[in-house]
Design a protein around this nucleic acid. Structure first.
Lengths: 193, 193
DNA sequence: CCTAAAAGAGACAGACCTGTCTCATCACGG
DNA sequence: CCGTGATGAGACAGGTCTGTCTCTTTTAGG
């Protein structure tokens, strides 16, 4: 069984498709282009993924898992809730500065696949809700559940908006003001009310 | 000269294309579909718009102008800066509740046309920067320019994030927490620092 | 009413799309 | 070494895409 070779090919397709999807979008990237860039036969792709949509979902899930792993690692280096949230903003700052930054692939997937029942939409929404749940979990150590829930939602919105601003070429402004606003939101959440 | 009839046809194409673009996206909506839905000949469309991209830009500009007009009208009903900002959030709350809400067309345009030099990208970015400038202008009446600038950027990010959450089916959560976070941001901006 | 502009209708080109199929080739495990 | 499963290569189908062209019909102003 060449199962390791098999998953190596599959992963290569996912990695190649990821680069094309993030640069040109999902609909604008044809299967022919993916297999040409990956230098594989078309049937190799269709043996691993029944349809293009399945490949898109696989790409999103792979990137989401990678994202979670990286944030897990960063969170371990901080102790307070505010510091853990700060590592998430640090991660975004580095991302925004990347030369190949083209905005959030998950947000783009929500834009191109607007049907909430579509597997691609659901995969993208999972990533967003995962980030929100992560921040809520962090904040629940220091805030009442209700306040943690609200602050996590506010921080998620702030981060998504910052990513959009960064895509419009204002990465530095976005991250600086996101940090300031995050402090204000956390300060507000600590006030008993 | 049938200039009024001419612009009536043109506007009808823009209105029809808008509905299709917001429902299905830009790349997923073909020209054939637009002319069928608008019940016009293909050449009528191509006489008004040299290419599909030009139609997309026209749709975005028409919607942006409409947006600005509506916010102008609402702002006139409020006096303080906080109240004027609140009318913007009110507008978004009503929008999120609309049965035909499918997320922000401008954000979707940025997602599908990632090239910052593309006319569609630029048209979408103009709308976002217009909203930010509007809020900065409002805040400058009560805050120092630097604080107004920062708060406007934070509020824009919050609103964009709220729109994304609303598209994921959490309109109520999004708007409630956006209001709370907006208060926290404005409170933070008033603190001398 | 008459004329000129606008619009309708539809064929057409050429490219691209997803997905299927066949057959040759290769690599590797038993 | 042999055979089995993964892969390569490319034709192919059937559809859709944008944009052009021609010819006819409608519309509306003077």
């Amino acid at each position: 069984m060449t199962s390791s070779s098999s998953s190596r090919k599959r992963q290569h397709v996912v990695d190649t498709a990821y680069l094309l999807f993030k640069r040109d979008g999902f609909h604008a990237t044809g299967v022919d282009r993916i297999i040409a860039e990956a230098d594989i036969a078309k049937m190799t792709m269709y043996r691993h993924f029944a349809a293009k949509d399945e490949l898109i979902v696989a790409v999103l899930e792979h990137r989401a898992a990678r994202f979670e792993r990286e944030l897990d690692r960063l969170a371990a280096t901080a102790d307070t809730a505010a510091a853990k949230i700060a590592t998430i903003l640090d991660w975004h700052e580095r991302w925004f500065r990347d030369a190949d930054f083209h905005g959030c692939l998950f947000a783009h997937a929500l834009a191109e696949f607007g049907d909430p029942d579509h597997p691609v939409f659901k995969a993208a929404a999972r990533q967003k809700n995962g980030l929100r749940a992560r921040m809520r979990f962090i904040l629940e150590k220091e805030l009442p559940p209700e306040r943690a829930e609200e602050a996590a939602a506010a921080l998620l919105m702030l981060i998504e908006g910052a990513t959009l601003m960064a895509q419009m070429g204002e990465a530095a402004t976005a991250i600086a003001n996101a940090r300031r606003a995050a402090s204000a939101i956390l300060a507000g959440a600590r006030v008993p009310q």
